[in-house]
Amino acid sequence: MTHIDGNAMSGVLSELLTVEPTTARSRCANCGDVAALAMALVYPDAAGWVARCRACHEVLATVVRGDGRTWLSLRGMTAIELER
C-alpha cells in the first residue's frame, strides 16, 4: 500500500481544528521521534486516514468520517505543539 505525506491531512483536520494542523509537532508515543505532522506517512485508502510515524511506523492518528460525524484518534501523538 502506498503512502503520501502528512500535508494531505491539512484539509480533513482543518475542519476540526482552528489552527493549521500540519505544522503541529508532536512526539511519537512509541519511539519518541518529534516531527511535524506534515512529515508523517499517511495512508488514505483505508476506511479513513491513518498517519504513521516516519521513524518507527507506529500509528500516530486516525480520522474516519461518515454519517455526518468524524471519529478522531490521536493515540500515538503526545506533547502536541500547535501554532497559535
Binding site: 502528512g6 500535508n7 484539509g11 482543518s14 493549521e20 500540519t22 505544522t23 506534515a38 501554532e83
Partner: peptide
Amino acid sequence: VHGPLGGWF
C-alpha cells in the same frame, strides 16, 4: 473549495 491549506510545504 476548502482552503488555503498547509503550512509546512
